[in-house]
């Protein structure tokens, strides 16, 4: 463009942010990657180019199990969240009268703003042995003995789904309302039923938004430590939990780094798998 100012000043504007990102993100990431190739000799660190840590991850049952658990939980959470959020976003976008839509949307995502740590804790209140759900079920006579709900995978999944349903409702809603209402009108005008309109027109048109939301869910879910730590108990650990165990009790930074690189690898694979439909710029 002819109206643009010279390059030198342009670089000056971008430099602070770039230097910050380099110094506090790229360099640490590179150091962490290098650390994943180092080994521990007793308590002292030996730098090198060793694949030991990755070999340990592949051969140690409880590390392999953690990766499997993380993938399973993340897959379950992503699918359930999309399936629950889509109808909610649909109803808010197309059934709730226009003047109430914004209120309904704000209400649907308001608990998003409770503290992240506190939100998981609140599910503990609900799912605990003496908690709301068990007491309600006993009072209604459906069960005699309290169910074990907290400290299970179900509790972890419930806590995650609660969070991501709100997130996905927001992104899917944004996708639905930006479609011209004439697409729906045209479909019904040509004889499509409500379901056919959804199946043949609206779903394909919102698919990029849904995939983007699902990808975001995947990334945030697989990297989260808080929810499984508070709600999941000690029967099975996810990768972030194992990383924290390595950092804390054992101070095994090389293994923790290798696990982080594996986590990054999984996210990258998920990105490549869904890149065709992703619209990260349209979040």
């Amino acid at each position: 463009m002819s109206g643009r100012a010279p390059r030198r000043t342009g670089r000056g504007f971008v430099a602070p942010a770039l230097i910050w990102t380099l110094a506090f993100f790229m360099v640490p990431f590179a150091v962490m990657a290098a650390m994943s190739l180092a080994t521990l000799d007793g308590r002292s660190l030996v730098w090198g180019l060793s694949a030991d840590n990755y070999a340990r991850i592949l051969t140690t049952p409880y590390l392999r199990r953690a990766i499997a658990v993380s993938l399973e939980i993340t897959a379950i959470v992503t699918v359930i969240s999309v399936v629950l959020a889509y109808p909610l976003a649909w109803i808010i976008a197309f059934r709730v009268p226009e003047r109430w839509q914004r209120l309904a949307l704000v209400l649907a995502v308001l608990p998003f703003w409770t503290s992240y740590v506190v939100r998981s804790y609140s599910w503990l209140l609900v799912l605990a042995r003496e908690g709301v759900v068990n007491q309600a079920l006993i009072a209604s006579g459906l069960i005699a003995e309290p169910l074990t709900l907290a400290n299970t995978r179900t509790a972890t999944v419930t806590g995650f789904v609660h969070f991501f349903v709100m997130l996905l409702t927001l992104t899917i809603y944004a996708n639905l309302v930006q479609l011209s209402p004439n697409y729906r009108r045209a479909a019904t005008d040509l004889g499509a039923s409500a379901f056919q309109t959804f199946r043949h027109v609206i779903l394909p048109l919102t698919l990029p938004g849904v995939v983007t939301g699902a990808f975001l869910t995947f990334v945030l879910c697989i990297g989260d430590y808080v929810t499984p730590q508070i709600l999941g108990g000690n029967n099975e650990l996810t990768v972030p939990q194992v990383i924290m165990v390595q950092l804390g009790r054992r101070a095994d930074f090389p293994l923790a780094s290798a696990l982080s690189v594996v986590l990054m690898g999984i996210v990258t694979l998920a990105y490549l798998g869904s890149a065709r439909w992703l619209r990260l710029d349209r979040l």
């Binding site: 990431f29 962490m32 990334v219 945030l220 430590y225």
Partner: peptide, 10 residues
């Protein structure tokens, strides 16, 4: 695109 845990660990 990187989880907070990894940013913090680095």
């Amino acid at each position: 695109t990187v989880s907070y845990l990894i940013v913090g660990l680095g």
